[in-house]
């Protein structure tokens, strides 16, 4: 069986897999990091988005062996060791950017990549376009977009703290 060596959330791992093992299967079933969800398993819904070497990818559509030697970040790797949330997580909480929560890990991971690639900030329209690969079946997009718009200000240092959501 092939062996895959990779770093997940800063921790090195060496895992035996099959050729056909998907990265999401390695994460969920071998490493028990079940924060990454499988929604459609057909690379459409984005619930499984993780970062591989800093780029957002759908972990249901990459083989574990393709991620050999990579640095992977999952939703579990975002918060600080003392539990302080990543600004994007904090924004999703403040803006109530979730209903059932199933799409949330993928939304947060995609949103972080999106914000990183737009250092000058994004309009609401650009945020919506950028979330094309993530589906929310509760159709809760409105607050997700608001959360990302607020988080980008903190992530790019234009605000010290998150703008509070309107009551």
């Amino acid at each position: 069986m092939p062996s895959v060596s990779l770093t997940v959330n800063g921790q090195p791992h060496s895992v035996e897999v099959e050729g056909r093992t998907l990265l999401v299967e390695l994460l969920r079933e071998k490493l028990r990091l079940t924060g990454t969800h499988v929604g459609c398993d057909t690379s459409q819904c984005g619930a499984c988005v993780v970062h591989v070497d800093g780029e957002s990818v759908k972990s249901c559509t990459i083989l574990a062996v393709q991620a050999d030697g990579s640095a992977v970040t999952t939703i579990e790797g975002l918060a600080a060791p003392d539990g302080t949330l990543h600004p994007m997580q904090e924004a999703f909480r403040e803006y109530h950017a979730l209903q059932c929560g199933f799409c949330t890990p993928g939304m947060v991971m995609s949103a972080i990549d999106l914000v990183k690639k737009h250092p000058d900030g994004m309009s609401e329209h650009e945020i919506r376009e950028g979330l094309e690969g993530n589906l929310c079946r509760c159709t809760g997009y409105h607050n997700i977009v608001k959360a990302i718009a607020a988080a980008q200000e903190v992530i790019h240092g234009r605000r010290e703290t998150l703008a509070p959501a309107e009551a």
Partner: peptide, 9 residues
């Protein structure tokens, strides 16, 4: 084309 994650791969 595709979406961000497809374009990254």
């Amino acid at each position: 084309l595709g979406d961000t994650q497809v374009r990254n791969r």
